[in-house]
Write a protein that binds this DNA or RNA. Structure first.
Length: 854
DNA sequence: CCTCTGGAACTAAGG
DNA sequence: AACCTTAGTTCCAGA
């Protein structure tokens, strides 16, 4: 075997090649494989930035899409000599692309955003989710798919290594290769068809899911599979327990050390073996697999023209980063969804950056003069539609109309593209939601043009941001599609569960090419939205509260506005210790006479301690029953004789924003965006002036006091950071050199749970603003996100560990996980008690703050 | 005739 | 194992 690894700066994995970056946890369990020679090549120019990127900031060199060098994601090219079965080779031959003499397999290493199985393309619009999302499906598609010449299938089809472990191997090395080279993409790339046609055209997905289990192929792959998988591989758990597979599972986690580098390579290689096949099966929970195996349950979509997931689609995600240029080109190919609109997508083409940060990267909402803001928040409830249903329309704003997003501070005349995808709304880092996809809405009622693309299996809606519109966009073209839980949960590597995971946020991104040649990427997200019919009808929800603070004595009246309040609704105030255990809990008096289904008038109960000397952050929730509780709402008790803490008005409270302002003096300058957490964790204390107290707000947050979150506005808003230059001294994130310990001593401090709660829904930043006092874990608080963003390398977010007490531990101990793949503990918890998620997060999911203690 | 929606039946998990 | 509850999905029907 000859393995050539081309590592490109973007993904954390990249470091793999260098051996100094973080490897995806996925590789951890890989066994060393067969003897192989690996050549690693990394573009020199990128190396400097690798570290940074891994850290989670994103600043990409502006490279024209057409320029060859833009390979975003690392690739492993494996040239196999006589390794592939005859049929495989043949299959490869079918590819329209030039075949390779030697079977060279180009594996796209999992990107940060690759945690999703490629097969899971967003089912979105119309493609039947079933066929597309289940892990089984993905495998099937990835491997068994007949590579047809159909435009849709071609280049994109080529399977790349899916981060999750289902590697799509472009046997001929073709697809991936293309992916790697943007320029290769023909102007009429299949992609476009994939994007536009497949997504859109599939609308009538119902046909696909007549039986609910419309998956066409069997997971065993007995039929169509020409893939590497052995047809007969047993679905049952394999002896290996698939550590290797785990690769895929945790691939997205960047926080690995180079020790896994070899493993990564091996993993890739293993993927090519039959062995790997077995593992794939393992990836799927037995139970789940059983289901998937049920007759008719799994459908292998083979139609070339297909619609479900064509291999091409599968690959997209892989390529997303690496192939972006190609993609961009494609979609920019002039697909104007709204013909009537004066604006032309093609115009945007030139402004599109070839490489964009993975969707699970945490980005700031503002930087320098730029600020991406949600001007109008969406309603807190939006019933998502299933593929079996028709669209349920666009997300609407509370006061009618639709959400509005605006980029402030942009004075150029070039239009930009606003990206929109559906993200999570839990207390963990913001990332694409596995169970929901954005759904493009069109029609006469839609005034905003939009275009769908795929990025890492996540459907992304692209909307023009025009200077003539003041860089403001009315989001009336976005609906939300719900994917079947069973389909998604089957995916290897998917650790999240769908049950009770029905809250989402609309995430917006904009990429600004700067004169420096770098691309500035900003991101912001809306308040959480409840997407299930049931939850929307049954769970109480607090939109507003008239008070944010009150003297410890209580007694003041507060009006809660929201939904689903009942006559017997209870309002419970409670306080939790850092370790999550309840310190205090009491019921507030509810004035039933003046309460309605949309409002509750209550009397603030006295705090347990009337002699507090400083503000105390507590939470309260509305309960319609044991399992019908609203999200936690933040509330602060203040000393009777102490003036209330004046917090910055709503949105401004955003920690990110605040911090940047005050911390601007930070020596970090240039580009890369370090997320707060990164900054915190990576930056030596001496370099963290704001942490010294200069910056109260930030400090507070760091302190872990409940109130700390008060400064954060909405989860949506990600930390706002200034550009940090790639050359900053903080590349420590990467276990770079020998001299520099990959993992500095890190102490993790848990913060109070409460803050993590995404309660933004309850307290939209804007509404919050009106409220005077502090806003503790106020809604919209981006819990973990703010403080910790991309924990890519060093510090995996550990929102929810079972540990109950403030913990100080060495980083190494930190289980790798992040993004979607949560730590085992977390995963278990979730699986076990989904319903307790929110609670759980509060209870157990402390925010972890990392300090460098050297 | 088709899409959008509100409701609710049906089903599978969980307890 | 049987039964009840809860939540996810699929259907229906009116607008």
């Amino acid at each position: 075997w000859f393995t050539q690894i081309d590592a490109y700066s973007h993904t954390p994995n990249t470091s793999l090649s260098l051996g100094k970056s973080c490897l995806p946890s996925q590789y951890h369990s890989l066994h060393s494989g067969p003897t192989i020679s690996v050549s690693i090549s990394q573009p020199p120019s990128y190396s400097a930035q690798n570290n940074m990127r891994t850290v989670g900031y994103y600043s990409s060199p502006s490279i024209h899409p057409t320029e060859a060098p833009v390979l975003e994601s690392p690739r492993i090219e494996i040239t196999a000599y006589g390794q592939f079965p005859e049929e495989e080779v043949e299959e490869s031959n079918n590819l329209p692309v030039p075949k390779q003499v030697n079977s060279i397999v180009t594996l796209t290493l999992p990107n940060a955003d690759g945690y999703r199985d490629p097969s899971c393309l967003s089912p979105a619009s119309s493609v039947s989710s079933r066929s597309c999302h289940s892990e089984a499906s993905s495998y099937e598609s990835g491997f068994s798919y007949n590579y047809e010449n159909s435009p849709q299938n071609s280049p994109w089809q080529s399977p790349c290594v899916s981060p999750k472990g289902s590697f799509s191997l472009a046997l001929p090395g073709e697809a991936c290769t293309h992916a790697g080279s943007p320029h290769n993409s023909p102007s009429t790339s299949p992609l476009s068809s994939v994007m536009d046609d497949s997504w859109m055209g599939q609308r009538g997905s119902r046909p696909n899911s007549p039986c609910g289990g419309k998956r066409k192929y069997s997971f065993n792959g007995t039929t169509t599979s020409k893939s590497l998988y052995s047809p007969n591989h047993s679905p049952g758990p394999s002896p290996h327990t698939s550590p290797r597979l785990s690769v895929t599972d945790e691939s997205w986690m960047p926080n690995n050390t180079n020790q896994y580098t070899n493993s990564a390579i091996v993993a890739a290689i293993n993927a090519l073996t039959t062995d790997g096949v077995a593992d794939l099966g393992e990836g799927i929970p037995l139970k789940a697999r059983k289901t998937s195996l049920e007759p008719g349950a799994v459908c292998l979509k083979v139609e070339p023209g297909r619609e479900d997931l064509s291999p091409g689609e599968l690959c997209q995600d892989e390529y997303s980063s690496s192939c972006l240029p190609l993609k961009k080109e494609n979609y920019c190919g002039g697909l104007l969804d709204v013909p009537s609109h004066p604006y032309s997508w093609s115009k945007l083409k030139q402004y599109v950056s070839p490489s964009l940060p993975a969707l699970d990267w945490q980005l700031p909402s503002s930087s320098g003069p730029y600020s991406l803001q949600i001007e109008v928040q969406p309603k807190s409830h939006h019933r998502a539609h299933y593929e079996t249903e028709g669209s349920r329309g666009a997300v609407k704003a509370l006061a009618g109309g639709h959400p509005v997003v605006q980029l402030h501070g942009y004075m150029e005349t070039k239009p930009l593209i606003l990206q929109l995808f559906i993200g999570t709304a839990d207390d963990r880092l913001l990332r694409p939601h596995a169970f929901y996809q954005v759904h493009r809405i069109t029609g006469k009622t839609v005034s905003t043009p939009s275009h769908e693309t795929l990025q890492s299996n996540t459907k992304v809606l692209e909307i023009p941001l025009l200077p003539e519109n003041n860089m403001r966009a009315i989001i009336d073209c976005s609906g939300i599609l719900k994917l079947r839980n069973s389909d998604i949960e089957l995916r290897k590597g998917e650790t999240d569960i769908g049950r009770k995971n029905t809250r989402v946020r609309m995430v917006f991104r904009v990429h600004i090419n700067q004169s420096t040649g770098r691309t500035l990427s900003l991101q912001t997200a809306t308040n959480p939205m409840e997407c299930s019919q049931r939850s929307a009808q049954e769970l109480p929800l607090v939109d507003k509260q008239t008070l944010q603070t009150c003297p410890a004595a209580g007694g003041e009246k507060m009006l809660l506005s929201g939904h689903n309040f009942q006559h017997d609704s209870k309002v419970v105030f409670m306080e939790k210790a850092q370790d999550g255990h309840h310190l205090w809990e009491t019921e507030a008096k509810v004035d039933k006479d003046s309460s309605k289904s949309t409002s509750l008038r209550i009397e603030i109960p006295p705090y347990r301690n009337q002699r507090i000397s400083s503000p105390v952050q507590v939470n309260f929730y509305v309960s319609n029953g044991k399992r019908k509780r609203s999200q936690y709402q933040g509330f602060t008790y203040v000393p009777a004789n102490v003036p209330m803490i004046k917090m910055e008005p709503h949105d401004d409270c955003d920690p990110p924003q605040v911090c940047p302002k005050h911390c601007s003096g930070l020596a970090l300058h240039p580009k890369p965006y370090y997320t707060p957490q990164v900054m915190t964790s990576m930056i030596p204390t001496e370099l963290r002036p704001w942490m010294g107290g200069a910056y109260p707000a930030c400090q507070q947050r760091l302190g872990g006091k409940p109130s700390s979150l008060s400064c954060s506005s909405s989860p949506s808003t990600s930390p706002k950071l200034h550009d940090l230059s790639p050359t900053t001294p903080f590349s420590m994130c990467l276990p770079a050199g020998p001299s520099q310990s990959p993992i500095p001593h890190v102490s993790i401090i848990q913060e109070t749970p409460g803050r993590y709660q995404p309660q933004s829904v309850l307290c939209p930043p804007s509404s919050a603003s009106s409220s005077p006092g502090s806003q503790p874990s106020t809604p919209g608080t981006s819990g973990p996100e703010a403080p910790f963003s991309p924990t890519h390398c060093l510090t995996p977010p550990q929102p929810i560990s079972g540990s109950s007490s403030p913990v100080t531990e060495q980083l190494p101990k930190v289980p790798e996980r992040g993004g979607r793949s949560s730590s085992p503990t977390l995963a278990n918890n979730i699986k076990q008690e989904p319903q307790e998620l929110d609670q759980m997060y509060l209870d157990d999911g402390e925010l972890l703050i990392i300090h460098l203690s050297r």
